[in-house]
């Protein structure tokens, strides 16, 4: 029964870059409707793990299952369940907002009937409805990120992967994005994997996984990690755990 609840399952993942072991025996589970923060310093292996989860690269060892589908062997079924927001912008600057979203919809085989109406409604929730026919190049970084989030959710995925999505955003935009994701998790039961190196973003997660030098050091919720590290804040616990391993 517990197996069924795990919408995303990563087991014994190993990844080498030449002689460098980027990920060492990484295990990770995300349950349906769970918000998991993957917290780690720069170079911890977060982006490598993210690339493996999204099928961009293949692990040297181990398995990655999304709703029971192996990301390599059943990639089409696995990718249908994923919504992805990458760290770097992945939106076509030369196309308008609506053209970008229609492009994504067509790639995912989403019916175009009522799509424009639905997109407009979604843009309204972000106060971006006036930008619908603007070229993405003319939008701010925060606005582009919101468009990428709308795009990632357009095909109603079960899991949302976000790789350091707040990079380059101002504090207000960061807060807005995080609040929106928490709302989606609560209202739609969306499972979220949010990778970050910012402790304050991880604090609101149901589960925090601390990754350092390619290894999972600890996992638990905000309170349990503080308790285990015998510190007062998550920030202190993170530093103690990651630096203690040096």
């Amino acid at each position: 029964m517990k197996e069924k609840l795990n919408i995303l399952r990563v087991s014994k993942i190993k990844k080498y870059y030449n002689d460098f072991l980027a990920l060492d025996n990484v295990n990770l589970n995300i349950k349906s409707g769970e918000f998991v923060a993957l917290l780690g310093p720069n170079g911890a292996g977060k982006s490598t793990l993210f690339s493996i989860l999204s099928g961009m690269i293949q692990a040297d060892e181990g398995d990655c299952l999304i709703d029971g589908n192996n990301i390599i062997h059943k990639s089409v079924d696995a990718l249908k369940k994923l919504g992805i927001v990458f760290q770097q912008p992945t939106i076509d600057m030369e196309l308008t907002v609506i053209e970008n979203l229609f492009f994504h919809a067509r790639l995912h085989g989403i019916s175009l009937k009522n799509l424009k109406h639905n997109i407009t409604k979604e843009l309204e929730t972000y106060k971006l409805e006036t930008k619908i026919n603007k070229k993405v190049r003319t939008l701010s970084g925060g606005e582009r990120r919101k468009i990428e989030l709308i795009r990632a959710l357009l095909h109603s995925p079960r899991v949302l992967l976000m790789d350091e999505p707040t990079v380059g955003l101002d504090p207000k935009s960061r807060q807005d994005l995080l609040s929106k994701i928490l709302k989606l998790k609560n209202t739609k039961g969306l499972s979220v994997l949010w990778t970050t190196h910012l402790v304050d973003e991880a604090e609101k997660a149901d589960k925090i996984i601390i990754l350092n030098k390619g290894k999972v050091l600890k996992e638990g919720n905000h309170n349990s990690l503080i308790r285990e590290a015998s510190t007062n804040t998550l920030g202190e616990a993170f530093l103690k755990l990651t630096e203690g391993k040096k």
């Binding site: 999204s54 990639s75 992805i84 992945t90 939106i91 600057m93 994504h104 790639l107």
Partner: peptide, 14 residues
Amino acid sequence: EMGVMKILLTTPLP
């Protein structure tokens, strides 16, 4: 270079 390739490669299509 613009990152759009990542979106193409992560669409549920072979």
